[in-house]
C-alpha cells in the first residue's frame, strides 16, 4: 500500500500573501502567465459583519484522478506515493484533462504540453517539502501523507474536501465544502 501525499490547508492561517504562488513559480521555473498554484479569495457577509477567507490551491493529487482516466494518450499517471504526474513525452496537448479536472488544474504553456504541480517531487527526494509549504509565512499550508495530516487535525474542525475525484486536501477554518467547490464552478 503506497502513501497518499496531500495538503492540509488551514484557511484560518492563510493571509493571502501569495508567497506560495511565487515560491512555486520560482522553484519550478513556471513560465510567465501560468500558475500551478493559486490563492483564491472568498468574501462573505455585509459590512461590518464581513469575512474574507482565502486558500491556496494547486493540484489535489486526487484519489480517483479524472485526468488519468480521460487522457487518451495514457500520459498521466498516479504514482505509488499518490503523486499525479504527466509524461511530457506522451502528452499531445489535446487538453482533455483540462476540461475534465473539476479544479482547473492542468495548464498549457507555449509548447502546448500539459503541466501542473508535481509536489516538487525532486525536492521530496532530497527530504525537502514542496516549495509552497516550506515558504508559507502563516504555516497555513501543511504538506505530508494525508493520513498523518488527518491525524494531526484530530479534534479540530477540519474536513477532507469532498468531490467525485477524491481530492487529497484537508481543510479547516470554517469554509464549507460547497463554498470551496463554488470557487471552481466554472471548471468541470
Amino acid at each position: 500500500m503506497g502513501r497518499q501525499y496531500g495538503f492540509y490547508i488551514r484557511t484560518e492561517r492563510c493571509v493571502q500573501c501569495h508567497a506560495c504562488e511565487l515560491a512555486c513559480n520560482s522553484c519550478n521555473g513556471v513560465e510567465r502567465g501560468l500558475q500551478w498554484r493559486k490563492v483564491m479569495d472568498l468574501w462573505r457577509g455585509r459590512f461590518p459583519d464581513v469575512s474574507n477567507r482565502s486558500f491556496s490551491f494547486g493540484c489535489a493529487h486526487c484519489g480517483r484522478p479524472v485526468c488519468v482516466e480521460v487522457c487518451p494518450e495514457g500520459a498521466i499517471s498516479k504514482r505509488k506515493d499518490g503523486i499525479v504526474v504527466v509524461d511530457p513525452g506522451k502528452c499531445v496537448g489535446c487538453r482533455t484533462c483540462g476540461d475534465a479536472c473539476p479544479f482547473g488544474v492542468p495548464q498549457y504553456g507555449q509548447n502546448g504540453i500539459m503541466q501542473k504541480c508535481d509536489l516538487c517531487r525532486e525536492r521530496l527526494e532530497r527530504g525537502r517539502q514542496p516549495a509552497c509549504a516550506e515558504t508559507c509565512p502563516g504555516e497555513a499550508l501543511k504538506f505530508g501523507p494525508i493520513d498523518d495530516l488527518v491525524r494531526e487535525a484530530d479534534g479540530k474542525p477540519a474536513f477532507l474536501l469532498v468531490a467525485p475525484t477524491e481530492p487529497s486536501v484537508l481543510i479547516s477554518g470554517g469554509l464549507t465544502n460547497d463554498e470551496i467547490m463554488g470557487l471552481f464552478e466554472f471548471h468541470g
Binding site: L22, A23, E134, T135, P137
Partner: peptide
C-alpha cells in the same frame, strides 16, 4: 541569478519568504 529560496538556518525568517523575495532575479 535564477531563483531564491528561504534560509532555514536564519532565526529571523526560519526558511520562510514573502512574495516579494521571489522577484529578486
Amino acid at each position: 541569478f535564477a531563483w531564491v529560496e528561504g534560509m532555514r538556518e536564519s532565526p529571523l525568517n526560519r526558511g520562510r519568504l514573502c512574495a516579494k523575495a521571489y522577484a529578486a532575479p
